[in-house]
């Protein structure tokens, strides 16, 4: 088995160990074959890396999105990062103006440098 960072995961890899969050709650069980949905979940739960079985052929993925220009400033990057992280949590939910506004406005606050989250600052 080997440890793989979340950003390097590919569909089709099989978990070699349970995945738990920081509080010890089990999120995914050993033996789970990872899909794009699972990877979005792991990213959303801010898991840094997972253990997977060796010698598994990964399923071919869609091409990666183009990189953002190097000149983008930190604020725009933070906003884009926050939107991307929230996008998985809002998938299929933005079916009215309120849910769209909830996503947009939350992304702005999550990107703000002084955003306070006691879970992270404790």
């Amino acid at each position: 088995m080997r440890s793989v960072k979340i950003k390097e995961l590919k569909s089709g890899l099989i978990l070699a160990r349970d995945v738990e969050d920081a509080a010890g709650n089990r999120l995914l069980t050993v033996g789970t074959t990872l899909s794009k949905g699972h990877m979005a979940l792991l990213e959303g739960w801010r898991i840094a890396e997972v253990w997977v079985e060796d010698a598994v052929t990964a399923v071919a993925e869609a091409p990666a999105e183009p990189e953002t220009p190097a000149t983008k400033d930190a604020g725009e990057e933070a906003l884009a990062e926050a939107k991307k992280r929230l996008a998985a949590r809002f998938e299929g939910r933005e079916r009215n103006a309120w849910m769209k506004a909830l996503h947009e406005e939350a992304a702005k606050r999550l990107a703000a440098p002084r955003f306070w989250n006691p879970g992270e600052n404790a």
């Binding site: 509080a23 309120w98 849910m99």
Partner: peptide, 25 residues
């Protein structure tokens, strides 16, 4: 509750933000 979910304050059982229809808002 959805405001708290969207701001990621605390933890929740559901990964997806609960959908709330127009009539509830």
């Amino acid at each position: 509750g959805n405001v708290a979910h969207a701001l990621e304050i605390g933890s929740s059982l559901s990964f997806l933000i609960p959908y709330i229809g127009e009539e509830v808002w």
